[in-house]
Design a protein around this nucleic acid. Structure first.
Length: 280
DNA sequence: CGCCAGGTGCTGA
DNA sequence: TCAGCACATGGC
């Protein structure tokens, strides 16, 4: 058992806010993957307790994944520019944007388009069972996320049999671009938002919204502001009567919230979704 | 059953 | 640049 200090952090909010699809609550722990390593993790007060089957997993890697090195209070004060986001921050303080694997994030959000989170989780789970490697930690058994080569080599029919629907050919084509190096995922972390988004938009099944999710959750582009149906609803607060295209909402939000607009988006998104649960 | 879901690609103005 | 349409599937 190990632990790291985790001030200004909510593990629950971070893992349940629709940015990741592969953590499982079990026996009071969350089980998941950080890179190739299986991890179980639990929050107690201002610290994170964790255990991994991989002795090579360092505290720094854990801190990095959960973005504990970032100054969250500073980020939140920079986006705390109106009453709506203020309420979301108050209700979910501690939510952090995770630093997930780029390829996994890209593949996951191709599956996420025009879909619901429950089904996305099922699709990704079946994808891992079909093409990933089996792993275990204590009583937990799971599968690693497949390599791009494995997905690129699968038949469209096989991918459809996992329930991917019309996304199957998109995912296969994008896996091919990653596998053959046409889309240099390792490189995208080091280029700016515009360049990263342009590259991502070259993939089948990747439009503005998916590209922004992947840039934000997989490549640390914090100015990315993904707009889905929930964010369109959230943005009604800013434009009560005028009909706005997603492109205009996107431009406004980036200007309004600044370099950490992606954090504002994640707080608003999570707040709206949990508001529905609270009221039903 | 009908509606909805972290939209995209294509077509035609 | 924008609107309108088809698209697979399962949760609710």
């Amino acid at each position: 058992m190990f632990e790291v200090a985790a001030p200004d952090f909510s593990l629950q909010a971070s893992l349940s806010s629709g940015q990741t699809f592969r953590w499982h609550a079990h026996d009071g722990w969350f089980y998941g993957f950080i890179g190739p390593s299986v991890v179980k993790v639990r929050q107690e007060d201002g610290r994170l307790l964790y255990e991994s089957s991989d002795p090579a997993l360092t505290p720094d890697q854990l801190r990095r994944y959960f973005a504990l090195d970032l100054d969250l209070p500073g980020i939140l004060s920079s986006i705390n520019v109106d009453i709506q986001v203020h309420g979301a921050i108050r209700r979910h303080r501690g939510l952090r944007v995770l630093r997930q694997d780029g390829w996994e994030t890209l593949a996951s959000f191709i599956c996420a388009s025009f879909n619901n989170i429950k089904r996305i989780e099922g699709m990704i789970s079946r994808l891992c069972a079909a093409f990933g490697e089996p792993v275990a930690l204590n009583g937990f058994r799971g599968f690693s996320f497949p390599q791009p080569e494995a997905v690129a080599g699968a038949s469209e029919r096989r991918l459809r049999s996992l329930g991917l629907g019309y996304r199957a050919p998109y995912l296969k084509a994008t896996a091919r671009l990653v596998a053959d190096g046409t889309l240099p995922v390792a490189h995208l972390r080091h280029v700016d938002y515009d360049a990263a988004k342009r590259s991502l938009l070259g993939c089948d099944g990747v439009g503005d919204k998916v590209a922004d999710c992947v840039a934000l959750f997989g490549f640390e582009k914090y100015e990315a502001f993904p707009i889905d149906v929930w964010m369109e609803r959230a943005m009604r607060y800013y434009f009560r009567h005028r009909r706005m295209t997603r492109a205009r909402l996107h431009a406004y939000a980036r200007r309004h919230f600044g370099p950490y607009a992606g954090y504002a988006q994640q707080y608003l998104y999570h707040d709206l979704r949990t508001a529905r649960e609270r009221s039903s």
